[in-house]
Amino acid sequence: MTGLLSTEVLSHIGRQTDPQREIVTRRDIRKYAVATGSRLQKYLDGDVAPPLFHLHLFWDVVPLDTLSPDGVFTDRLLPKFPLEKAMAGGLDIQYHQPIKPGDWLTATRTLSNIYEKAGRSGALIFYEVMMEIRNDAGELVVSEKTTRILR
């Protein structure tokens, strides 16, 4: 280990966002389906949401003046990392139930891990964010783990 990660940075592991509750509408599903180039009628009609629709539903809606100059919002879940250049990350998603118009869904995001590794051209920082999406009955609908790499 190269010791990049201070105790302060590591102390953010386990931090959670406030639950975010949103309603699914047919119109939002239709817009998402058209924008992704979907060819399946059930999605284009908005009868059921395509996979990954939860990205649309839970992308933070923030005021314009809180965006950075490159148009990105600051994820409040994350500490200030000693490396900042983002590299490609990965996703691991489980779909437990279909999402339909009229569903109220609640997402909670947790910063589940931060660690470092020696890469070929220097140290890399990895962090993982778990997102759990549940319906009003408390049942799991989608769970997602995002891994991001910083260099």
């Binding site: 992704t36 060819r39 395509p50 996979p51 990954l52 990965g90 996703l91 489980q94 779909y95 891994t147």
Partner: peptide, 26 residues
């Protein structure tokens, strides 16, 4: 990532559903 899902979803049509996926952007 959505296009990865679509290639499977169109092939499955209504004969099945995607229960999980793991992918990265290279």
């Amino acid at each position: 990532g959505d296009w990865l899902h679509q290639i499977v979803d169109e092939w499955l049509d209504d004969a099945g559903m995607i229960t999980g996926i793991e992918y990265s952007n290279r």
